[in-house]
Amino acid sequence: MPPLDDTDRRLLNDFQRGFPLTARPYAALGRRLGVTEDEVRRRLGRLRDQGLISRIGAVVRPHTAGCSTLAALAVPPADLDRVAALVSDQPEVNHNYQREHTFNLWFVVCADSRPAVTRVLERIAAASGLEPLDLPLLEDFHIDLGFPLWT
C-alpha cells in the first residue's frame, strides 16, 4: 500500500461529519483541500479500494431506522472460522468480530423489526448449534463526532 500523503490523511480525517450537502460535494472537498474534484473522486476511490474507507455515508442513530442487537457466541476455538463465516453470511449482520473472551464472536444484527432480529438469531443458533447472547441496546449515551485519526 503506498504511503498516505497529507491530502489522503485530510480526506480520511476531516470529513467524517458534516459532509457537504451540495450538488457537487467532491468539488467542495477539493476547494477545501486545494485539489480538483476529479482528484478527490480518484483518491476516495483509491482509499476505498485500499480498504481504508468503508463508505461515505450516514451513521444512523440506533433503532430509528430499524431494530438491532449486539450478539455474542461462545464458539469452540477449532470451530471459529466456520461459525464466523456463517454469521458473516447473514445479510442482516453488519459487524462481526472475534474478541478475547469465552464469548469470542461478537456481531451486530440489524433488521426492520425486533421479530426479524430474533429470526436472524434463531437462524444463527440453528446453523451453529450455539445459543447467542442477545444484548439489545437499552440506552445510548454517546454523541458520535467521528474519530480524530491524526492529532
Partner: peptide, 15 residues
C-alpha cells in the same frame, strides 16, 4: 475485550 479479528464491517442494511 480486545478484538483479534474483523470478519465483517459494513453499514447497516436496513430495509
Amino acid at each position: 475485550l480486545f478484538s483479534s479479528r474483523c470478519f465483517k464491517q459494513c453499514g447497516a442494511r436496513y430495509g
